[in-house]
Structure formats: structure tokens, C-alpha cells
Nucleic acid binder design. Structure first.
Lengths: 347, 347
DNA sequence: ATGACTTGTGCAACCGTTTGTATATTAATA
DNA sequence: TATTAATATACAAACGGTTGCACAAGTCAT
């Protein structure tokens, strides 16, 4: 018979290394973890043997023994088809991944795709001992996930601001109130007097904060805060075009709209232009997220860059603090930038 | 003393359940796995006790004992900042997540963010026993990852087409050759005679296939395949604007461009228009990925929808076949759709 | 030479499940 | 009634590591 190259599924264990080195498994284990109780000579000798044998530690076994996994869970919200249409999620994920990688954490993701419910997913992650910590990106007004994690004191951090009565929750957010305040001021500054707002989903704290910022600017400038100019809905084009039409058809038509997301803004913009109304001449539009769309769209949009990547990486840093040092209650506000473009510049 | 609500970190083990039920741990284990050797009566009794005690199986321990994890790894390619700018990755990920969730697989992701190299990441996943299978989204011409996975016969599936000499690799792809062929035909059909192509990165099989499709259409229609009209580069705007300029400045200026991605196409479009050349009148443009941009951009782009979500879900289905049934060598070609818009319609 | 301390290593229990095999009980067969 | 087959459960050894504690040998001061 001819010889055959045998590709071993390579499961060299700590015990085999130990036997080969003529020491006990515990010694090898301590070599791996750089335990100072092992002499330099032994350490080197065993390291060499490990290399030679192609030893690779089994993460699962280690997790079981140490009761920690080196993995964090990220819960992507909603079952909606368009989670990923909004660049916020992928970008935040990128920020998370960057810091995670740097600190040797793996990332377990879960999209709430089959309506299991986020809480169920989290429970599965935690009670199944699959993760050491969790990053929440959802952030509803009264989020049962937050309550749950808080109650069992499991390490987590939140992108967004918790609305609950709970203190001591690690979170990172941008100043939605301030951003909307400034955006509204900008609108007023370019001479708009009747400004509508298409905010996001009603039950998000983000939405509430933005409306407050809007209101503050409006009132500060002596305009009237008119609730009939406040619209809420989901983050898709349809919402935009629907409210866009409504706004364009009001008898006392607004001359400016603040929108919660670029895509929604384009929905509105399209609907408005279809009715023969000009943007920005008749109605100015400003929105959030500074996606590629706002730059390359047929009318470049003034848009707030909330720096999603930063949001993600800071959230991961907070989480590491929570896991490794028991930190609770940190709060980070990341800066935003308003990019002014044609949709509010007349140019 | 007052009574206190004690929130247990909840580690009810199989042994505790067993003791409480007066049976052995193995019986409980078999109850969990619905082993028919356990009587109906016992099964029900123990189920009740498990509920009552709040038992939740420890996934790590199970993984160790069964030597499988219920987790798959997804390798997001390149360390580049713009992995997520291209909607392909998030969308494919969504497709993967959908099927994974349905089949009770978790998803471990890793972006090759700190230059560790994809191979290192894969090795860590596999040798650390962290995953049961892997989905590759990279697909370079001679991919060491593919070689590696193939050699150790580890279950994986590929989004894209392997170029290597290797047979029997599960993969799913769209017909890049055909899509580009049809796109080029469309260009010719609207009267364009000198068509350039800005393909993707040179070392991707996708790029090579697209160029072939382009060439085939060109030659079939009696035009000349001119390599000086073939450009290759990365998937960002800069590439687009750079080559856009080059093309617009050619002494015998092309009247059509096929571009590998919408974002790149916009880079080109901007550069071209800056030079006072009209799209689509002077130069028509068609591209790939059918992103929001191609719909809402200032000139709507004719674009190929490669159906990334489908690509992802099929890849996951193949992977499950590979893991659970040892299937190797399946190949799935998913259909594409060309959306014709103003950039090639003159309208 | 004795006791105390330091240093390097081994022993064995444990992390929470799974699973092949043995055993006890009951039912069926001759 | 003895024998066999089927059924239901227990035992114990894995899976691959980690870690508290014990122990042996060497060093040092007395």
C-alpha cells in the first residue's frame, strides 16, 4: 500500500503534552496561563513541546472550567427587514468588533428574526452560559431586557439612554436633544418659521429626546410648538413619503422638516417633489445619520452624523469594564457633527 | 431580619434536578434529549421538576461533551473601513442569520480588523472548537482559507465561486459572467459603442468573471475588446472618481461604463459631471448591487440586484447540509435582476 | 543538625453534560 | 416455573481544561 498523508483533526490535548513532557497536566496548564509558580526552564521546555506537537487550547473546555467564555453577545433589534438598511447597525457593529478584537473577545450576534423576542435570546445567551456580557442596541422606552439584565446584575452596556427609573446602567449615547435643538436652530437661522418634525418610533427614548430638543429650539425662538407638526413612525421610506404628503398638503404648509433618518427624509422628499413643491426653496429638509445617501442623493441632505462607529466602540469599552472590573453606571456622550448641505442651504 | 429576594445567578444543574427527582443525572439528560428509553411517566415528572427549579441547560458543557457547538463562524473580509459601506455584507449576514436562527445555530462573527489575517481567525475558531462550520465571504482568487478548510475537511460554504483547482466546495454565487454580459448587451442595445468597465479588485474571481462576461458581449456584437478600457480597483468612491476622470479625459472617450458597485459608480459619475460631461447623454453608466443609492441618487442608476440576502441564506443552508449531513460540493446559482434606470435610459 | 521558609510540581476534585454498558424489574414465552 | 426478552434506570467514564492544596527538595539562619 502507498503511504497516505493523514490530516489529523488535530486534537492534541493538554494531557498528551503533559505526558510527552513528563509533567502533570496542571503544570502544562500553568505554563499556558503564565503562572509564575512554574520555573522558567520548565516553561520554555514545555512551550517548545507544545509548538512541536501543535497544541491548541480548547476554548470550550476552558470556558467550562473557568466559567467564562471570552464572548460577548450583541442583540440586533427588531425582526424588521430593514435593520440593515439603516447604516447605524452595521457601523455600530464595526465599532464593537474593533474593540472586541483588540481585547480578544468574540462576538455572538443574534437578530431577532423569528419573533422569539429579544428577551428570550438574551436569556438563552446568559443562562446557556454562552456570553460574558451583552450589548443592547434596541433601547425602547420601557425595555424588559434592561430590567432583566439589571435585576440579575449581568454585565451589559447599552447604546442609547435608558429611560427607566434604574440608575447605574452603563450606556453610551449621543446628545439627541442637543443635536435636534441645533438642527432646529439651523432651520430657523435660514429663515424657516413653521417647522415640522418626522421623528422615529414613538416608544424610543431617542425619539422623545429629539422631540424635546426640537421643542426647546422652537420655543426659545419664540415660535409655537404645535403638536400637529409632530409625526412619529418607523424608519422606512414609506413613513417618509406618507408624512411628506401630509405635510405638503397642509393648508398652512410648513417650510421646514426635521427627519429622523436620511432614508425617511428621501421618502418625504420624493413625495413632496412629486407634488411640485421645491426642496429646499419651499420646504427645507434636515435629517439624521449622514448616510451615503445624504451625500449623493439627488438633493444632498443636511444631516447629523451621530458617529455610530464610535458609539459601538465606546459601548464595547464600557462592557469590558463591566465584565472585567465590575464597573456599573458609566455614561458616555459622544459628539455629533452636523453636515450642512443643499437641502437647507438653497445653494 | 427581613426576608430578601435572592436573585440567583441561576445555576441549577442537571445533578441537582436529578437529586431532587431521585433519579440519576443520566436519566435527566435523556429526558432533555427526548431519549425514548425513558418512560413517559418519568419524562413528565422530571420535566415538571425542571420547570419548577428553573433548570436551563449549559450550552458550554453540552458542547464539550458532544464535541459540537451549535455555532457557526462568519468571516467578514478585509480590515478595510468600508466593509459595511457596501450593503452586500450586512444583507448577506441577514440572510445567514435568518436560516441560522431557524435551525438553532448561533453566529460568531469576526472582522479581520487587526490584521491578524483571516486564516488566523479561522484557525482560532476551529482549533479552539468554537464553531461547527464556517461561511466565507471573501473569495480571493487563490484563497488560503479555502485551501485550509478543504484540507482539514472542515464544513464550510463559500459565497462566491472558488477559482482553485479544488472540486467539491459548497458555494453559492450569482452568475457574474451572465449578469455582466447582459448589462453590456443592454449598453450596446441603447446604442453605446465604446464601453469601459471599472471592475472590482483584480484578485477576486468575481472580477474576472465579470470581465469575461463583458468581453463576451463586446465580441459577440462585433465590437473590439480593448484592454485599455478595463480598469480594476477597490470598492470605494475614490476608485470611481479616479477612473471616471481618466475615462472622461480619453481622447476617444467611451460612451458607456459598467461599474462594479453603485458607490464606485457615483464616484465616477461625480467626477465625470464635474468635467461637464453629461450622464447618460454622453456617457451611460450601469453598475452592481442595486443599493438605495442607485434608486435615490441624483441620477438613478441602472444596477444589477444580486440578491445578497438570498446569497446569505443559501450559503447557510449549504453549510447546514455540510455540518449535519456531510454534504460537499453543492453549487447554487442565485438569480439576479437588472433594474434599468435613468443612467442608461436617457429619460 | 533542626526548623522555617521558599520554590517547583503533582494530585485530585471540579466545571455541567453525554453516553456505552451494566443492572434491576417486569412481562412474555415455552 | 424457569428462561428469555423487553423496558427503565443507574453507574461511571469521558469531554479538555483549571485550581486549591499537599508535598518534596533546596536554601537559609540558628
Amino acid at each position: 500500500m502507498g503511504s497516505e498523508i493523514l490530516i489529523k483533526k488535530s486534537t492534541v490535548t493538554i494531557k498528551e503534552v503533559a505526558k510527552r513532557a513528563g509533567v502533570s497536566p496542571s503544570t502544562v496548564s500553568r505554563v499556558i496561563s503564565n503562572n509564575p509558580r512554574i520555573s522558567k526552564a520548565t516553561t520554555e521546555r514545555i512551550r517548545a513541546i507544545m509548538d512541536e506537537m501543535g497544541y491548541y487550547p480548547n476554548a470550550i473546555a476552558r470556558s467550562l472550567a473557568k466559567n467564562m467564555t471570552g464572548t460577548i453577545g450583541v442583540i440586533l433589534p427588531t425582526t424588521s427587514e430593514d435593520v440593515f438598511l439603516n447604516p447605524f447597525f452595521p457601523e455600530a457593529l464595526r465599532g464593537i468588533a474593533k474593540i472586541a478584537s483588540k481585547n480578544n473577545y468574540d462576538i455572538l450576534i443574534s437578530t431577532n428574526i423569528d419573533k422569539k423576542g429579544e428577551l428570550k435570546i438574551i436569556e438563552n445567551f446568559i443562562r446557556g452560559s454562552k456570553v460574558d456580557g451583552i450589548i443592547l442596541m434596541s433601547n425602547k422606552l420601557d425595555d424588559e431586557c434592561i430590567e432583566y439584565l439589571y435585576n440579575i446584575d449581568f454585565p451589559f452596556s447599552l447604546i442609547g439612554t435608558p429611560n427607566t427609573h434604574l440608575e447605574n446602567i452603563n450606556h453610551v449615547d449621543n446628545d439627541n436633544l442637543l443635536a435636534t435643538y441645533e438642527l432646529t436652530k439651523h432651520m430657523i437661522c435660514i429663515g424657516r418659521k413653521r417647522i415640522a418634525i418626522i421623528a422615529g418610533e414613538e416608544n424610543l427614548t431617542m425619539t422623545q429626546n429629539r422631540i424635546q430638543g426640537y421643542k426647546k429650539a422652537i420655543e426659545e425662538e419664540g415660535l409655537v410648538f404645535d403638536t400637529s407638526l409632530v409625526f412619529m413612525g418607523s424608519f422606512d421610506e414609506k413613513t417618509g413619503s406618507q408624512y411628506g404628503k401630509v405635510i405638503a398638503n397642509m393648508k398652512d404648509m410648513p417650510d421646514g422638516i426635521i427627519v429622523a433618518d436620511d432614508l425617511v427624509a428621501y421618502g418625504a422628499l420624493m413625495a413632496i417633489e412629486e407634488l411640485g413643491i421645491k426642496v429646499p426653496e419651499d420646504i427645507a429638509i434636515a435629517s439624521f445619520n449622514n448616510s451615503i445617501l445624504s451625500k449623493y442623493g439627488n438633493i444632498p441632505l443636511t444631516s447629523v452624523d451621530i458617529n455610530s462607529v464610535e458609539l459601538g466602540s465606546k459601548a464595547m469599552e464600557l462592557l469590558i469594564d463591566a465584565i472585567e472590573r465590575g464597573v456599573r453606571g458609566s455614561r458616555i456622550i459622544t459628539p455629533f457633527t452636523i453636515f450642512k448641505r443643499r437641502s437647507t442651504m438653497g445653494g
